Structures are given as C-alpha cells and as structure tokens.
Simulated assay, not measured.
Amino acid sequence: MNLALWITAGLLAAVCLIGSAKMFVPREKIGAMGASAEWALDFSPAALKAIGAVELLAAAGLVLPAVLDIAPVLVPLAATGLVLLFIGAITVRLRRGERITIAGDVIYLVLAAFVAWGRFGPESFTG
C-alpha cells in the first residue's frame, strides 16, 4: 500500500508540475491547444498564474515533505488541496459542457483522494 501511495503521489506530482506551465504560457496560446484547453480563455492571465502556482505547490507538497522528512503531514494536506482543485476543474468542464474531456479530471480526483485517504489513514507518516 505504501508503494502504491508513493507511485500515485509521484504521478500526481508530475501531472501538476507539467500543468504548472500555465504560469508561463500566454492564455491565448493555451486556448489554441485544442478543445480540451479552451477553458483557459474563460480566466484572466492572473487567475491562470494562480492556478499554475497552486499546481506547482501541490507537486512539491506531494513529494518533498515526505522525502526530506520535514513536516510530512503536508503530503495529505497537499492531496486534499488537489481534490479541491480537481473538483473545481470538473465544475468548470461541466459548466462549459465539456463532458467528454472530464474523464481525466475525474481520474486525477480519485488518485488525489486515494493519496489523501492513505496518508491521513492507514499509511500515515505520523503514526
């Protein structure tokens, strides 16, 4: 179980690290990447930078506290924050009528919930 949680946290960290690129890419360029990225045009550049910053912090929070053994309680908190982020992403996709592209967000939501549950519960770093 511990190995599965580490792999899942690493996968989510990689996804969030890649997703944090929206801090540096203009929103028009993101929106032009295809139908699944048009949501970016609904947000201001500052909001996209904030979302990217949250994803960057989540990527660091999922792995670094446990690896460095400095405040490992931050791992399940970061995973819980990702659950909230992906709930927001799913809400945006539903409002935009993008039901086909929602599958990825639902999968990431389930993975983040798994890490939060596992690190708060049976495989806690503090217990």
Rank of each mutant, 00 (worst) to 15 (best):
G61Q: 07
G81R: 00
L68T: 03
F86Y: 15
G61A: 06
V110A: 15
A103W: 14
P45W: 00
I100Q: 10
P26L: 08
T126Q: 14
V25D: 11
L94E: 12
L62G: 00
V92T: 14
V25G: 12
L74H: 00
L17R: 07
S124E: 02
L68S: 07
G127L: 11
W6G: 00
I87T: 00
F43M: 09
L82A: 01
L74Q: 00
I7A: 09
R96E: 15
W39E: 09
I30E: 10
P65K: 04
F120D: 09
E123Q: 12
R119M: 07
A50T: 08
L56S: 06
G19E: 11
D69R: 15
P76W: 08
F24I: 14
Y108E: 13
E98Q: 15
S44W: 08
A103Y: 05
T91G: 02
V25E: 10
A78V: 12
A50D: 06
I102T: 15
L85Q: 11
A116W: 11
P45Q: 04
A78P: 01
V73S: 01
A66V: 00
S44Q: 10
L82Y: 08
T8D: 03
V25R: 13
T91C: 09
E55S: 06
A4N: 03
W6V: 06
I51V: 08
A79R: 03
A66P: 12
I90W: 13
I102K: 12
S20W: 02
G19M: 01
R27D: 02
